[in-house]
Each structure stands twice: as structure tokens, then as C-alpha cells.
């Protein structure tokens, strides 16, 4: 299985940097997420995680370091987290580390809402 690498940018839209490693299972999304077509951008990420879970079947660590994401990005992030939740319930090894600016109370609250939403144990890591 191939790695998934997307170089982020901050031009007209904010494209996050994506680095999903099929050998280690470490998947990182960082930067900012505000896209022209959110569904089109996140679909390959969701497909990658789905394929990893079903073929590699190894441990997976999702590391989120997004300082900003808009609400449609937040919906696609929920899709990824739900996949991980299902994988964990089926016996997969899942770690989610979510890094955030400790002064950003809204962000911390949103992470808490993802924890309630998904039932996943998400490690909140303040910067």
C-alpha cells in the first residue's frame, strides 16, 4: 500500500498538509483546512484509511495539528474519526492525538464534542 502525501498551501484556499504512512500507520493532518471542494479533498483520505484498515490491518495513529478548519472540513474529519472508531470496536489498535493552541477554547470544546460524538479516546495535547 502506498503512502499518501499532500503538500499544504495557504493561497486562495487553505490546503492542509497530509502525511499518511502505510508502513508505520502514522497519519498526520496539519496546517489549516478550508477548501474549495471539501468532499473531493477528503475522499482520498477517507479511502486511504479504509484501505489501510481492511488490508494492512495494523495499528493506526491519527495526529491532528490543525490550527483552523471550517465547518465542512469538520464534517469530513468526523467521517475519518468514525472509521477509526469502527476499527477500534472491531479490535484494531487506534490512537488519536489532537494538538491545539491552549488559548483556543473554542477548539478545545470542539475536540471534546468529537470525543462525545465518536466515543473515541482522543488525546488532547495543548501547545
Amino acid at each position: 500500500m502506498e503512502n499518501l502525501e499532500i503538500e499544504g498551501s495557504h493561497k486562495n484556499f487553505f490546503i492542509p498538509t497530509v502525511s499518511f504512512n502505510a508502513r508505520t500507520g502514522i497519519c498526520q493532518i496539519s496546517g489549516e483546512s478550508f477548501l474549495e471542494d471539501t468532499v473531493e479533498f477528503y475522499l482520498p483520505l477517507i479511502d486511504w484509511v479504509d484501505e489501510y484498515i481492511n488490508t494492512v490491518k495494523g495499528p493506526i495513529a491519527l495526529i491532528i495539528k490543525l490550527s483552523y478548519f471550517n465547518t465542512s472540513s469538520s464534517r469530513s474529519l468526523l467521517d475519518i474519526l468514525n472509521l477509526l472508531r469502527d476499527y477500534e470496536e472491531a479490535g484494531g489498535e487506534v490512537v488519536v492525538n489532537w494538538h491545539f493552541d491552549e488559548n483556543d477554547i473554542d477548539m478545545e470544546e470542539d475536540i471534546d464534542d468529537y470525543i462525545i460524538d465518536t466515543g473515541l479516546e482522543i488525546n488532547k495535547i495543548p501547545l
Binding site: D37, Y42, T71, S74, R75, S76, L78, D113, D117
Partner: peptide
């Protein structure tokens, strides 16, 4: 926040919208 969580779970709207 509860309303947000409820609405965000719904199927995506046009343009991938989250209804929130």
C-alpha cells in the same frame, strides 16, 4: 453544542456542508 453534534452527524449537504 449538543445541537451542533446532532446536526453534524446528518448526511452532508450540498458542497459537503455540515449544517452547522
Amino acid at each position: 453544542r449538543e445541537y451542533k453534534r446532532e446536526q453534524r452527524k446528518l448526511p452532508k449537504g450540498p458542497k459537503g456542508g455540515a449544517h452547522i
